[in-house]
Design a binder for these strands. Sequence first.
DNA 1: AAAATTTGAGAAAAGCTTTTCTCATCTTGA
DNA 2: TCAAGATGAGAAAAGCTTTTCTCAAATTTT
Lengths: 354, 354
Amino acid sequence: MRKGFLSANKFGRGHLENQRIRTGRVTIHDVAAAAGVSISTASKALNNTGRMGDDTRERVKRIATEIGFRPNALAKGLLSNRSFTIGLLTNDTYGRFTLPVMAGITEALVDHGVSVFLCTIEDDPALGKVHVDAMLDKSVDGIIASGKRIDRRLPVDLSNLPVPVVYAFTEGTSDSVTFCADDFQGAALAVEWLMGLGRRRIAHITGPESFVSVRERTRAYHDLVGDALPVMYGTWSEAWGHEAVAKIWDTPGRKPDGIFCGNDQIARAVVDALRERDVRVPEDLSVVGFDNWEIVAAQTRPPLTTVDMNLKALGREAGLTVLALAEGRAVEPGIRTLPCELVVRQSCGGNPEH
Amino acid sequence: MRKGFLSANKFGRGHLENQRIRTGRVTIHDVAAAAGVSISTASKALNNTGRMGDDTRERVKRIATEIGFRPNALAKGLLSNRSFTIGLLTNDTYGRFTLPVMAGITEALVDHGVSVFLCTIEDDPALGKVHVDAMLDKSVDGIIASGKRIDRRLPVDLSNLPVPVVYAFTEGTSDSVTFCADDFQGAALAVEWLMGLGRRRIAHITGPESFVSVRERTRAYHDLVGDALPVMYGTWSEAWGHEAVAKIWDTPGRKPDGIFCGNDQIARAVVDALRERDVRVPEDLSVVGFDNWEIVAAQTRPPLTTVDMNLKALGREAGLTVLALAEGRAVEPGIRTLPCELVVRQSCGGNPEH
DNA sequence: AAAATTTGAGAAAAGCTTTTCTCATCTTGA
DNA sequence: TCAAGATGAGAAAAGCTTTTCTCAAATTTT
């Protein structure tokens, strides 16, 4: 090997000790030897099981800490059939929805020593299968499926797997647990906020009607404001936000004094378009977004008041649920809807202290 | 257990067969039994090692496929000291940089059967240690450290770990391998593009001078256009883009005909601000961004021509390198700089075919 | 035809932990 | 003082796979 080159054998200690070659890793053998007890006693001491003198137990524990023993999760997993590992499968390439979910999962599971494999499978079923198989090979304790919309399945079959599967922000099977945000309640929150500020002509500019989220939010909107104004369906883009504003303002008639947007990108474009038409936000008109995508909502001028779907909490619940299933605890199947909350910034005016 | 409840024991087959309880997983024992050979023969057949008749080998392979045998990665790992697992550690919460890097890593490693643990550690050293320890417990074959800027370390000590560590888009140790984008070359690409379009008064609006990326890009800018115009340092926000444009246009004097921006957010704000001042982009002035953050660059009106750091390729390289190290192959330590490339959209005008 | 090779396949060990037995020693009660 | 029970600790097996030996049978060589 050339000088200055890196190689893995730099990591192996490689000297002899006690008739066996140290592999660089401290095993329970080392603990037992250092404490002068058998391996089984050492194991029992560390796991607070079995019978032995308190002094022995404490001494073993102390020595284990001193020499830096950490049990090999592979060996543990092989024996217990638990790997303390779960897989997170998603087709959300940008991580817009999956990253918050993932943060919640990790937060919930790190205390339990569970790590998360993240696999992004665009919309490729073959790739999906490869990743699922890899997870199963590694004996994951469970799988959480996530995505970018709640009414679409991942392009991979997760039924009849030998491990529990929980769905978060993607469509699941009827006999499993699925977590999603309460679009109806979130939309109601937004519209009620606008009404509470005295807005009476509230428009709704949103995404494609094919999304169940869109229909749910629209339903809440209709329930609260009636159908004096037509709901404007389009794409989830800024382009659509601009176009929708143009449609309204280029048509004669009374203008809205509040706009509830289907997501933050549309809301941002709406705010921009209104500024270009010298409509003042929030003085003349209030805008509410949906998603609380910081990177958009906080950069808009003025920053957006918007609905947060609490994806992190959703991830936390999904994590705890898959853990429960992995441990054999009973969990009621079905769809769990988690409430949204309103994040108040400056695009509506009113009192942020409200 | 109540009816309709889910529980993990639903997954265990749990019937007797051949004197041992089937755990639901097909093991090499099952293959051997079904093929009428010993376990060792089965293993050798499947791994194309050892000596045996071609007919035996083929028969074992066929039966293994038929009954759906997949070797238990835990057992394999315990024996080989390879878990076919790596850890990706990052403090990039939004995933702006880490997700592309991750995609590249996964792409490079999935063929080798390697899965990736993703751990996001905000800036919490304690949390970082917890995650690193969890990875080591699980015998990861290596760790890739990533972040959101190349001149900052992760808040956790990764030296003297028993596994190889590779750095990607974050500062590493001098004796390790670090991958980063070539800021100088990328900036040169942008400025040369502007000059190629005939722009002669090119301004540079960028982020905080404390970033080494900013200084590198500025150096390239200076090398190409001299220092007739002062570089404008600020924050990475849209607010700064607006402010910078205001500064230039509210000051008497000749205006630039090209602006090279330090990132896409600034560039987007610059484009917006220019539109508000009725400066036409790209007719009157060309704008180039940096990062190729689709979500910003593609939504800007007009869409941004911008520099792409090829983070996915960077991730791919990092993945292959950590794999090489894990397999004991020699790798030259040091900083590897990967070239950027220009993504041409419409904010510069000119011929996209160029 | 006998000896030397080659060939095919199985036994056993290793990798690390946990758990279940088993056994020897110590204590307690009669 | 002897039997019964409690206590402390070790031996061994299990979990699954790969690898190294070993051994018997078949083939080739002399």
